[in-house]
Design a protein around this nucleic acid. Structure first.
Lengths: 181, 181
DNA sequence: ACCTGAACACCGTTCAAGT
DNA sequence: ACCTGAACACCGTTCAAGT
């Protein structure tokens, strides 16, 4: 990549991070390009879809959540590890308003730029869930995809201004259902 | 209302029902107006917001769900009545793809045309929940707003194509959490 | 190689002008 | 009273033309 292109790309990502933190993941791409001082077509050259831009932006966070799952796999009780990780996932999505809908769409869409990250995340959750199930402290009638869906639903609750005040409490309610044997 | 206006209004509602059933509640209002053979401005004269159009369209359904709650209040066991009604609510929203987001926004927005219907629905759910709580068959640390949020989250799951296959099962999981004492 | 303005086909909002 | 086309300010997509 040419030096000027690299610079454009980095700057776009930085501006996108700020704008998306303010307005959510559905922020106008034109607005992001404008604030970065480049044309919209330039943004789309670097990131052909909104998902591609988000993937570049959230890649580090996805890695961190996956790494965190790895740490938890060998520490604490299986059920504490699972619930702690679920809490981390939900808390993380609140930083990116609206990302839940895109993740829900990406988990089954192999064409989406977010697909691989979502699949990796689901696999990490599956390992923690299986461990808790093997220990007899999580219900055995759910799998990693169910877990992914429950995280998404709880994250979605946190995204809705009117329901967000109940999100933490309802997390506990759902977590108790997961841990029920 | 003048006869021609009434006719326009009725026809718009009929067309809107068809289009929204196909495309979801975020269907283009311009498209609905076009298919109804009137100008977009005419649609907006009758229904100044998307919520107003939906309220007119869903009014009957809201009434039916509320009436159903009333019937269930005096029949069957409190926990069966509650779960049965929750299931009805979630099943109903699947007919109107995307309505959950608008309802979640309307429950606290007194300006929304959907506000009154959502509040009525929440009140109906609250009565069924309280009855089950009094009978000792529903957890007592949740209220009607929590219930509304859980319905919304489950309905949202059913709206996401990739997660919808798990929606029924996850309904049972969450229902079991509500019924836990 | 990389960037860009401009044309395109949409969206919902608003309103002056018509019947 | 009621309706409507048109202007407006947006959106993301596409591409020919520039550096």
């Amino acid at each position: 990549m040419r030096a000027d292109a690299r610079k454009n790309r980095d700057h776009l990502l930085s501006v996108a991070g700020t704008v998306i933190a303010e307005q959510g993941v559905e922020a106008s791409l034109r607005d992001i390009a404008r604030k970065a001082g480049v044309g919209l077509a330039t943004l789309l050259r670097h990131f052909p879809t909104r998902e591609a831009l988000l993937e570049a932006l959230l890649h580090t966070s996805f890695d961190e959540l996956t790494a965190r799952a790895g740490e938890l796999e060998t520490s604490g009780s299986p059920e504490d590890a699972l619930v702690s990780w679920l809490r981390d996932c939900v808390a993380w999505t609140t930083e990116y308003r609206g990302v839940t809908v895109l993740m829900a769409a990406a988990i089954e869409d192999t064409e989406s730029a977010l697909h691989a990250s979502c699949v990796t995340l689901r696999a990490a959750g599956t390992r923690l869930l299986t461990r808790a199930q093997d220990a007899g402290t999580a219900r055995t009638d759910i799998d990693g995809t169910d877990l992914f869906a429950l995280i998404a639903a709880l994250a979605w609750l946190g995204d809705q201004p009117a329901l967000a005040p109940r999100a933490d409490h309802l997390f506990d309610v759902v977590a108790s259902a997961i841990l029920a044997k």
